[in-house]
């Protein structure tokens, strides 16, 4: 009898630990497992997949009539636009102007990628001449003001700000007001918007990222509130830009939501029916005197530059 009790006690102790580990793994750990490579996780985009001048690169390759050979504007930009500005470089710049060490662009390269936050800092600090991003955040504008730099934003294409949920979430569409109510904590459960009876875990991005800046602008006066209980048990909603979700990450486990009943595809962005479409920009310093910079911007706005934007999967200005 004593032996049976002792074995039971040992088995119970092992079972408690096993149950704890299984619960932690299923409720928390497995949600954070990222199927992408380490390079993709570190940079938000697989740089080597979209390198200019590489035979197997997935960028759009265009034989441009416009070429630059010297005084090359140094280029940088956001993850969601990297395939586009890499294609611009491929079409216009000399091959030896881009130097990539296998993981990063080297300091003497004419092409860099430091994402939205890094790009806005680079252009203000004079480390880049032309960056490709969404609108700057208030903090980024304040940094430019503090350094006495005036930025010029030239619209070069259109993109959609999208909300994403798990592919198995039965909700396919929300109104703008419902999204604001979810993020401000007024709507807490998916059942309030036609979904299952589960808490809504409204996810945000890091401060200064292009999508977070767009989200704050979308929310207007409404403050974003986090529901800590939903973080463990809820079903998530997040936001990003359409091409980043669809083209760069291409994850079939998520789906984009229609907003006000309109799906964010190229057609609805182009005709203006999707309500959260907005321009993306080529951004330079107003006092930059490099003549090639203005010539490059003019070329980006020309048929050739716009063709790259279109064939890369984005929406052109017209």
């Amino acid at each position: 009898m004593k032996l049976a009790k002792q074995i039971l006690a040992i088995a119970l102790a092992a079972a408690v630990f096993a149950a704890f580990d299984i619960a932690v793994y299923n409720v928390v750990t497995k949600r954070y497992i990222n199927p992408n490579s380490e390079g993709m996780q570190a940079k938000s985009v697989e740089l080597s997949k979209y390198l200019p001048f590489e035979e197997n690169s997935e960028i759009v390759k265009l034989n441009s009539s416009f070429k630059l050979t010297d005084d090359l504007p140094v280029i940088d930009g956001a993850a969601a636009l990297y395939p586009v500005f890499s294609a611009f470089v491929n079409a216009v710049y000399p091959k030896d102007s881009v130097r990539f060490d296998g993981e990063n662009f080297t300091p003497d390269s004419a092409l860099h990628y430091t994402n939205t936050r890094g790009s806005y800092k680079a252009i203000v600090d004079g480390d880049a001449d032309l960056i490709f991003c969404a609108k700057p955040s208030e903090e980024q504008l304040a940094y430019a003001n503090e350094k006495g730099v005036e930025l010029e934003l030239i619209p070069i294409g259109r993109e959609a700000f999208v909300f994403i949920v798990n592919a198995e979430n039965p909700v396919n569409s929300l109104t703008e007001e419902q999204v604001r109510d979810i993020y401000s904590g007024k709507i807490l459960n998916w059942s309030e918007v036609g979904g299952k009876n589960r808490l809504i875990n409204a996810l945000e991005r890091n401060e200064g990222s292009g999508s977070q800046t767009r989200m704050l602008s979308f929310m207007g006066d409404k403050e974003i509130k986090r529901n800590v209980f939903a973080a463990l048990t809820g079903s998530a909603i997040g936001f990003s830009f359409r091409y980043y979700v669809e083209g760069i990450v291409g994850n079939s486990g998520v789906k984009m939501l229609s907003i006000n009943g309109v799906y964010p595809d190229k057609e609805h962005i182009a005709n203006g029916e999707y309500p959260l479409s907005s321009n993306f920009y080529a951004v330079c310093r107003k006092d930059d005197k490099n003549a090639n910079l203005r010539a490059l911007i003019d070329w980006i706005l020309s048929d050739e530059g716009q063709k790259i934007i279109d064939e890369s999967g984005y929406v052109t200005l017209e």
């Binding site: 932690v24 990222n34 996810l203 998530a236």
Partner: peptide
């Protein structure tokens, strides 16, 4: 397991988190 989870959390992506059922 907790340390591993915390390390995953530090490099978490919204898209993979949602795709994983989060």
């Amino acid at each position: 397991l907790v340390i591993y989870t915390f390390q995953l959390y530090q490099h978490a992506s919204i898209i993979s988190y949602i795709a994983n059922g989060g």
